[in-house]
């Protein structure tokens, strides 16, 4: 059983796989996601990074915060390159040119995963390349200033679906990446959140050890474009879980297991409060939208619990 001490010892200092001096925003949760996931690999790890917040801030020429082989890629091809790296690695191994076992990690934001890199991801999962795909999900194109993505939740105001007199923001619910990934019948899919370090670490460990492709979707509140005090990143992550807005669960060989069941589900307002993208929902004329959102969250949760209880294979 890993402890916070064990994880801290692996992520701290200049020997860690991700080091200080990167230019992610003050209070950004991405470094905590990435360093924890990297620490969970007991083998050398190659990182393939789609364009996004993490990519543009971690390797600003002539600096790099990576202390492990890392490749900068475009939005759409992180999973495709991961597949290529895995194939090349297997070929080299077959010829006896490498002996060491390694792990391969593709990383993208929600824009690079749910939308632009989706086809490459689906292809790599379908071909069953042995790699893990990590999506850090800040629910929009945040690196370019808050445009709507397939992961943006219902009701959020973005620059491309701004709330105003004609619109209340995004009118659709987000995609469920975990179930989409599970539909490829891959051995491991996990949904985690940045504040729960131990749960995230354990899921990353399982993903790396899986006998085939694995996908990890991790919620990562964005202080800059959700516009809250940077000190509150972990608090918003916690609230997302306590409201069932972002349940922590996993799908192992098709079987659903919920890792955290809030003793008392908090109302979704607790999560929405204080975020600029949801500010308009608190106007009297928009209150019904919050009720609608609450209904969607509760329905999704009931469905998830049912999936777990019946043990039906996804």
């Amino acid at each position: 059983m890993p402890t916070l001490q064990d994880i801290a010892l692996k992520t701290d200092g200049v020997d860690a796989r991700l080091v200080s001096g990167h230019r992610m925003c003050a209070g950004c949760g991405i470094p905590a996601v990435v360093k924890t996931v990297l620490a969970a690999s007991d083998k050398p790890v190659i990182v393939l990074n789609a364009t996004g917040c993490l990519e543009v801030t971690s390797a600003v020429y002539p600096f790099t915060a990576w202390n492990t082989p890392w490749m900068h890629l475009t939005f759409e091809n992180a999973a495709a390159v991961a597949a290529g790296v895995e194939s090349a690695y297997k070929a080299l191994k077959r010829r006896g040119r490498v002996e060491e076992d390694i792990n391969i990690l593709a990383v993208g934001g929600d824009g690079g995963t749910y939308d632009i890199g989706f086809q490459a991801l689906s292809g790599a999962l379908e071909r069953r390349h042995k790699f893990m795909y990590l999506a850090y999900d800040n629910e929009g194109y945040m690196n370019t200033g808050n445009q709507r993505s397939g992961a943006t939740p219902f009701g959020a105001s973005t620059t491309t679906v701004p709330a105003g007199t004609a619109s209340f923001g995004k009118a659709q619910w987000r995609k469920n990446l975990v179930e989409i990934a599970a539909a490829h019948r891959i051995p491991y899919v996990g949904q985690a959140a940045v504040h729960n370090t131990l749960d995230l670490y354990k899921k990353a460990e399982k993903g790396f050890k899986a006998d085939g492709p694995a996908v990890l979707a991790v919620l990562q509140p964005c202080t800059t474009n959700w516009a809250y005090d940077p000190a509150l990143t972990m608090q918003y992550s916690k609230l997302a879980v306590e409201t069932n807005f972002w349940p922590l669960y996993e799908v192992e060989n098709g079987v659903v297991h919920i890792n955290v069941k809030p003793a008392k589900r908090r109302p979704v307002e607790d999560f929405l409060k204080g975020q600029s993208r949801f500010k308009h929902l608190f106007k009297t004329e928009n209150q019904h939208l919050i009720a609608e959102m609450q209904q969607m969250i509760d329905d999704e949760w009931t469905r998830l619990v049912k999936l777990e209880e019946t043990g039906v294979q996804l």
């Binding site: 916070l4 701290d12 200092g13 003050a26 905590a32 972990m234």
Partner: peptide, 29 residues
């Protein structure tokens, strides 16, 4: 930095929560 964290070592329980959360790996252990 606009604000600076002032650490009172005498109250610390060395739980490593801050270390694992710190986005800048700025808490040496």
């Amino acid at each position: 930095r606009v604000f600076r964290p002032v650490w009172d070592a005498s109250q610390c329980i060395h739980c490593m929560i801050c270390v694992n959360y710190c986005p800048d790996m700025a808490i040496p252990i």
